[in-house]
C-alpha cells in the first residue's frame, strides 16, 4: 500500500484529492504547508509527495529543495502541482528537484498515470 503525502494549503482541494486518492487505494496523509510537509516526510516516510507549489511560509519549490538536500529523505518521489500553467513552471519544478509536474485542476486519470509511473506499480 503506497503512502502519499499531499501538501496543499487549500482545504477543499486537500479534502477532495485525498478522498479520491484514498478511494483508489492509496494511504493519504496531508500537510497544510511546506514546513509541516517536511516534518511528515521525515516522520511518516511517504512513498510519494504531491506538492502544491504555492504554499504559505516555505513554498513548494523551497520545500522540495530542502527535501532533496536531506540525505535521509532525498529519495522520496515528488510531483509538483501548480495552478499556474505558465511556461517555465515545469522547468522550475524539475529544477527544484521534482520528479514530475502536473497542473491543477487535477485530471484524475492523468495524475494517477504519473503516480503509477513514478511508483512503478498500482497501489
Amino acid at each position: 500500500m503506497a503512502k502519499i503525502l499531499l501538501v496543499e494549503d487549500n482545504e477543499l482541494n486537500r479534502d477532495m484529492l485525498s478522498r479520491r486518492l484514498t478511494r483508489r487505494g492509496y494511504t493519504v496523509i496531508v500537510a497544510e504547508d511546506g514546513e509541516r510537509g517536511l516534518e511528515l516526510v521525515r516522520s511518516e516516510r511517504p512513498d510519494l509527495v504531491l506538492m502544491d507549489m504555492s504554499l504559505p511560509g516555505i513554498d513548494g519549490w523551497e520545500a522540495t529543495r530542502r527535501l532533496r538536500a536531506d540525505p535521509a529523505i532525498a529519495e522520496v518521489r515528488v510531483i509538483a502541482l501548480t495552478a499556474h500553467a505558465m511556461a517555465g513552471d515545469r522547468e522550475r519544478a524539475i529544477e527544484a528537484g521534482c520528479d514530475d509536474y502536473d497542473t491543477k485542476p487535477v485530471e484524475m486519470d492523468r495524475l494517477l498515470l504519473k503516480i503509477t509511473t513514478l511508483l512503478g506499480a498500482t497501489p
Partner: peptide, 18 residues
C-alpha cells in the same frame, strides 16, 4: 483572478467527479 477563480472551480470539478 485566474488563480482565485480556478481554485473554487477545482473544487466544483473535483467534487462533481467524486
Amino acid at each position: 483572478m485566474s488563480h482565485e477563480l480556478r481554485t473554487p472551480l477545482n473544487a466544483i470539478i473535483g467534487y462533481s467527479e467524486i
